[in-house]
Design a protein around this nucleic acid. Structure first.
Lengths: 116, 116
DNA sequence: TATGGTACTAACAAAAAAGTAAGAAATGAG
DNA sequence: CTCATTTCTTACTTTTTTGTTAGTACCATA
Protein backbone atom coordinates (compact mmCIF):
# COMPACT_ATOMS: atom_id res chain seq x y z
CA UNK A 1 0.00 0.00 0.00
CA UNK A 2 2.65 2.51 0.83
CA UNK A 3 5.05 3.34 -1.96
CA UNK A 4 7.70 4.39 0.55
CA UNK A 5 8.89 0.82 0.62
CA UNK A 6 10.52 1.54 -2.72
CA UNK A 7 13.11 3.42 -0.68
CA UNK A 8 14.50 0.00 0.09
CA UNK A 9 15.79 -0.19 -3.43
CA UNK A 10 18.30 2.51 -2.62
CA UNK A 11 21.45 0.64 -1.80
CA UNK A 12 24.05 1.38 0.81
CA UNK A 13 26.43 3.08 -1.57
CA UNK A 14 23.80 5.54 -2.58
CA UNK A 15 22.94 6.35 0.98
CA UNK A 16 26.55 6.83 1.93
CA UNK A 17 27.38 8.98 -1.03
CA UNK A 18 24.32 10.97 -0.22
CA UNK A 19 25.42 11.48 3.37
CA UNK A 20 28.89 12.36 2.20
CA UNK A 21 27.56 14.97 -0.15
CA UNK A 22 25.22 16.28 2.49
CA UNK A 23 28.10 16.82 4.89
CA UNK A 24 30.28 18.47 2.27
CA UNK A 25 27.35 20.64 1.34
CA UNK A 26 26.75 21.67 4.93
CA UNK A 27 30.38 22.66 5.31
CA UNK A 28 30.75 24.55 2.04
CA UNK A 29 27.32 26.09 1.88
CA UNK A 30 27.36 29.81 2.41
CA UNK A 31 27.57 32.78 0.18
CA UNK A 32 31.28 33.33 0.65
CA UNK A 33 32.87 30.17 1.95
CA UNK A 34 34.09 28.79 -1.34
CA UNK A 35 35.57 32.14 -2.23
CA UNK A 36 37.30 32.44 1.11
CA UNK A 37 38.74 28.96 0.75
CA UNK A 38 39.85 29.67 -2.81
CA UNK A 39 41.69 32.80 -1.80
CA UNK A 40 43.38 31.08 1.10
CA UNK A 41 44.36 28.24 -1.19
CA UNK A 42 45.93 30.70 -3.61
CA UNK A 43 47.63 32.94 -1.14
CA UNK A 44 48.33 30.67 1.82
CA UNK A 45 47.93 33.34 4.49
CA UNK A 46 45.69 36.34 4.46
CA UNK A 47 44.96 38.94 7.05
CA UNK A 48 41.42 39.76 7.93
CA UNK A 49 41.72 43.07 6.12
CA UNK A 50 43.19 41.40 3.05
CA UNK A 51 40.29 39.00 2.87
CA UNK A 52 37.89 41.88 3.22
CA UNK A 53 39.54 43.64 0.30
CA UNK A 54 39.36 40.58 -1.92
CA UNK A 55 35.81 39.57 -1.10
CA UNK A 56 34.21 42.50 -2.82
CA UNK A 57 30.87 43.34 -1.29
CA UNK A 58 31.13 41.30 1.88
CA UNK A 59 30.22 42.95 5.15
CA UNK A 60 32.42 42.64 8.21
CA UNK A 61 29.66 40.84 10.01
CA UNK A 62 29.46 38.21 7.31
CA UNK A 63 33.20 37.84 6.91
CA UNK A 64 33.65 37.18 10.59
CA UNK A 65 30.68 34.83 10.66
CA UNK A 66 31.89 32.78 7.72
CA UNK A 67 35.42 32.61 9.08
CA UNK A 68 34.11 31.42 12.42
CA UNK A 69 32.08 28.69 10.80
CA UNK A 70 35.03 27.61 8.71
CA UNK A 71 37.13 27.46 11.85
CA UNK A 72 34.44 25.52 13.68
CA UNK A 73 34.40 23.01 10.84
CA UNK A 74 38.16 22.72 11.01
CA UNK A 75 38.91 24.10 7.56
CA UNK A 76 40.54 27.37 8.50
CA UNK A 77 43.16 28.29 11.07
CA UNK A 78 43.28 31.65 12.80
CA UNK A 79 46.57 33.09 13.95
CA UNK A 80 46.48 36.21 16.04
CA UNK A 81 49.59 38.26 16.80
CA UNK A 82 49.78 40.12 20.11
CA UNK A 83 50.19 43.52 18.52
CA UNK A 84 48.40 46.80 18.42
CA UNK A 85 46.70 47.45 16.13
CA UNK A 86 45.77 43.77 15.94
CA UNK A 87 47.04 41.49 13.24
CA UNK A 88 45.23 38.27 12.47
CA UNK A 89 46.17 35.85 9.75
CA UNK A 90 43.95 33.17 8.35
CA UNK A 91 45.13 30.05 6.56
CA UNK A 92 43.89 26.62 5.58
CA UNK A 93 44.21 23.66 7.90
CA UNK A 94 45.19 20.29 6.40
CA UNK A 95 41.50 19.46 6.26
CA UNK A 96 40.91 22.68 4.39
CA UNK A 97 43.79 21.98 2.04
CA UNK A 98 42.35 18.56 1.32
CA UNK A 99 39.61 20.35 -0.57
CA UNK A 100 42.13 21.66 -3.06
CA UNK A 101 41.22 19.37 -5.94
CA UNK A 102 37.54 20.02 -5.51
CA UNK A 103 38.04 23.77 -5.33
CA UNK A 104 40.20 23.82 -8.42
CA UNK A 105 37.73 21.73 -10.37
CA UNK A 106 34.86 23.90 -9.28
CA UNK A 107 36.74 26.96 -10.42
CA UNK A 108 37.50 25.35 -13.77
CA UNK A 109 33.97 24.12 -14.26
CA UNK A 110 32.63 27.55 -13.44
CA UNK A 111 34.98 29.32 -15.80
CA UNK A 112 34.10 26.92 -18.57
CA UNK A 113 30.36 27.00 -18.06
CA UNK A 114 29.70 30.58 -17.13
CA UNK A 115 28.56 32.15 -20.37
CA UNK A 116 29.44 35.78 -19.66
CA UNK B 1 45.13 56.95 1.16
CA UNK B 2 42.64 54.28 0.33
CA UNK B 3 43.78 50.76 0.91
CA UNK B 4 41.44 49.45 -1.78
CA UNK B 5 44.20 49.98 -4.30
CA UNK B 6 45.80 46.87 -2.88
CA UNK B 7 43.11 44.99 -4.76
CA UNK B 8 45.32 45.56 -7.77
CA UNK B 9 47.73 43.01 -6.41
CA UNK B 10 45.19 40.28 -7.09
CA UNK B 11 46.17 38.87 -10.44
CA UNK B 12 44.00 37.80 -13.29
CA UNK B 13 44.14 34.12 -12.47
CA UNK B 14 42.87 34.75 -9.01
CA UNK B 15 40.03 36.84 -10.26
CA UNK B 16 39.07 34.26 -12.85
CA UNK B 17 39.22 31.36 -10.48
CA UNK B 18 37.17 33.42 -8.11
CA UNK B 19 34.53 34.13 -10.74
CA UNK B 20 34.55 30.49 -11.75
CA UNK B 21 33.98 29.39 -8.21
CA UNK B 22 31.35 32.04 -7.70
CA UNK B 23 29.40 30.77 -10.69
CA UNK B 24 29.70 27.15 -9.64
CA UNK B 25 28.61 28.15 -6.18
CA UNK B 26 25.59 30.01 -7.49
CA UNK B 27 24.53 26.98 -9.47
CA UNK B 28 25.07 24.36 -6.78
CA UNK B 29 24.01 26.38 -3.78
CA UNK B 30 20.77 25.20 -2.32
CA UNK B 31 19.80 22.84 0.40
CA UNK B 32 19.02 19.95 -1.92
CA UNK B 33 20.67 20.56 -5.25
CA UNK B 34 23.77 18.49 -4.69
CA UNK B 35 21.68 15.62 -3.42
CA UNK B 36 19.35 15.80 -6.37
CA UNK B 37 22.28 15.81 -8.77
CA UNK B 38 23.92 12.92 -6.96
CA UNK B 39 20.79 10.79 -7.17
CA UNK B 40 20.33 11.57 -10.83
CA UNK B 41 23.95 10.73 -11.45
CA UNK B 42 23.52 7.37 -9.75
CA UNK B 43 20.18 6.41 -11.21
CA UNK B 44 20.13 8.20 -14.54
CA UNK B 45 16.40 8.83 -14.60
CA UNK B 46 14.09 9.44 -11.71
CA UNK B 47 10.45 10.31 -11.56
CA UNK B 48 9.31 13.21 -9.47
CA UNK B 49 7.83 10.83 -6.92
CA UNK B 50 11.03 8.79 -6.79
CA UNK B 51 13.07 11.87 -6.07
CA UNK B 52 10.62 12.82 -3.36
CA UNK B 53 11.05 9.42 -1.75
CA UNK B 54 14.82 9.62 -1.80
CA UNK B 55 15.16 13.18 -0.58
CA UNK B 56 13.97 12.48 2.90
CA UNK B 57 12.41 15.52 4.49
CA UNK B 58 12.03 17.66 1.39
CA UNK B 59 8.71 19.36 0.79
CA UNK B 60 7.04 19.29 -2.59
CA UNK B 61 7.38 23.01 -2.84
CA UNK B 62 11.14 22.81 -2.37
CA UNK B 63 11.59 19.84 -4.65
CA UNK B 64 9.81 21.57 -7.51
CA UNK B 65 11.66 24.81 -6.84
CA UNK B 66 15.09 23.19 -6.83
CA UNK B 67 14.30 21.17 -9.94
CA UNK B 68 13.17 24.31 -11.74
CA UNK B 69 16.35 26.12 -10.84
CA UNK B 70 18.45 23.18 -11.95
CA UNK B 71 16.58 23.16 -15.25
CA UNK B 72 17.00 26.89 -15.64
CA UNK B 73 20.74 26.47 -15.13
CA UNK B 74 20.80 23.72 -17.71
CA UNK B 75 21.85 20.90 -15.41
CA UNK B 76 18.68 18.86 -15.39
CA UNK B 77 16.32 17.74 -18.11
CA UNK B 78 12.62 17.25 -17.58
CA UNK B 79 10.72 14.71 -19.62
CA UNK B 80 6.98 14.64 -19.30
CA UNK B 81 4.87 11.82 -20.71
CA UNK B 82 1.37 12.59 -21.95
CA UNK B 83 -0.32 10.20 -19.58
CA UNK B 84 -2.83 10.26 -16.80
CA UNK B 85 -1.89 10.18 -14.04
CA UNK B 86 1.11 12.24 -15.11
CA UNK B 87 4.57 10.79 -15.36
CA UNK B 88 7.59 13.06 -15.32
CA UNK B 89 11.17 11.90 -15.45
CA UNK B 90 14.17 13.95 -14.54
CA UNK B 91 17.71 13.30 -15.73
CA UNK B 92 21.02 15.09 -16.05
CA UNK B 93 21.89 17.09 -19.12
CA UNK B 94 25.44 16.84 -20.50
CA UNK B 95 26.25 19.97 -18.53
CA UNK B 96 24.91 18.30 -15.43
CA UNK B 97 26.86 15.14 -16.14
CA UNK B 98 30.02 17.18 -16.51
CA UNK B 99 29.83 17.73 -12.76
CA UNK B 100 30.32 14.02 -12.17
CA UNK B 101 33.92 14.17 -10.98
CA UNK B 102 33.19 17.01 -8.64
CA UNK B 103 30.12 15.31 -7.20
CA UNK B 104 31.98 12.07 -6.63
CA UNK B 105 34.86 13.84 -4.94
CA UNK B 106 32.52 15.81 -2.76
CA UNK B 107 30.81 12.61 -1.72
CA UNK B 108 34.15 10.97 -0.94
CA UNK B 109 35.45 13.97 0.95
CA UNK B 110 32.28 14.13 2.98
CA UNK B 111 32.33 10.47 3.82
CA UNK B 112 35.95 10.70 4.87
CA UNK B 113 35.62 13.83 6.93
CA UNK B 114 32.24 13.44 8.53
CA UNK B 115 33.02 12.17 11.98
CA UNK B 116 29.74 10.38 12.72
C1' DT C 1 -20.87 10.09 -11.43
C1' DA C 2 -17.40 9.55 -8.01
C1' DT C 3 -12.57 8.13 -6.92
C1' DG C 4 -7.71 7.59 -7.27
C1' DG C 5 -3.10 8.68 -8.52
C1' DT C 6 0.63 11.89 -9.97
C1' DA C 7 2.76 16.17 -10.55
C1' DC C 8 2.41 20.21 -9.56
C1' DT C 9 0.73 25.52 -7.88
C1' DA C 10 -0.49 29.29 -4.78
C1' DA C 11 -0.98 31.80 -0.52
C1' DC C 12 0.48 32.72 3.79
C1' DA C 13 3.53 32.05 8.00
C1' DA C 14 7.77 31.02 10.15
C1' DA C 15 12.56 30.78 10.25
C1' DA C 16 17.09 31.72 8.70
C1' DA C 17 20.39 34.55 6.42
C1' DA C 18 22.22 38.87 5.36
C1' DG C 19 22.55 44.07 5.52
C1' DT C 20 23.38 48.31 8.29
C1' DA C 21 25.25 51.09 11.53
C1' DA C 22 27.35 52.10 15.67
C1' DG C 23 30.80 51.03 18.85
C1' DA C 24 34.57 48.56 21.66
C1' DA C 25 39.40 47.23 22.83
C1' DA C 26 44.15 48.00 22.81
C1' DT C 27 48.30 50.87 22.52
C1' DG C 28 51.90 53.40 20.02
C1' DA C 29 52.49 57.91 17.83
C1' DG C 30 52.03 62.74 18.12
C1' DC D 1 45.53 63.26 26.36
C1' DT D 2 43.85 62.42 21.82
C1' DC D 3 43.89 59.95 17.65
C1' DA D 4 44.54 56.35 14.36
C1' DT D 5 44.52 51.54 13.19
C1' DT D 6 42.74 46.87 12.99
C1' DT D 7 39.80 43.21 14.26
C1' DC D 8 36.02 42.29 15.71
C1' DT D 9 30.94 42.71 18.41
C1' DT D 10 26.16 43.98 19.09
C1' DA D 11 21.54 45.44 18.14
C1' DC D 12 18.26 46.06 14.90
C1' DT D 13 16.11 45.78 10.19
C1' DT D 14 15.37 43.84 5.81
C1' DT D 15 15.56 40.17 2.64
C1' DT D 16 15.62 35.49 1.38
C1' DT D 17 14.63 30.90 2.13
C1' DT D 18 11.81 27.32 3.74
C1' DG D 19 7.60 25.17 5.86
C1' DT D 20 2.62 24.39 5.80
C1' DT D 21 -1.60 23.75 4.02
C1' DA D 22 -4.94 23.55 0.68
C1' DG D 23 -6.11 23.02 -3.88
C1' DT D 24 -5.82 22.06 -9.29
C1' DA D 25 -5.68 19.24 -13.61
C1' DC D 26 -6.10 15.18 -15.94
C1' DC D 27 -8.68 10.87 -17.28
C1' DA D 28 -8.88 5.84 -16.61
C1' DT D 29 -11.34 2.93 -13.78
C1' DA D 30 -15.07 1.37 -10.82
Amino acid sequence: MRKQSSTNTINKEHIESNCGIAYTNSVLNGRWKLNILAFLLDEEKLRYSELKTRLIGISERMLIAQLKELQADGLVHRNSYPEVPPRVEYSLTPKGKSLEKILIQMAEWGTKNNQN
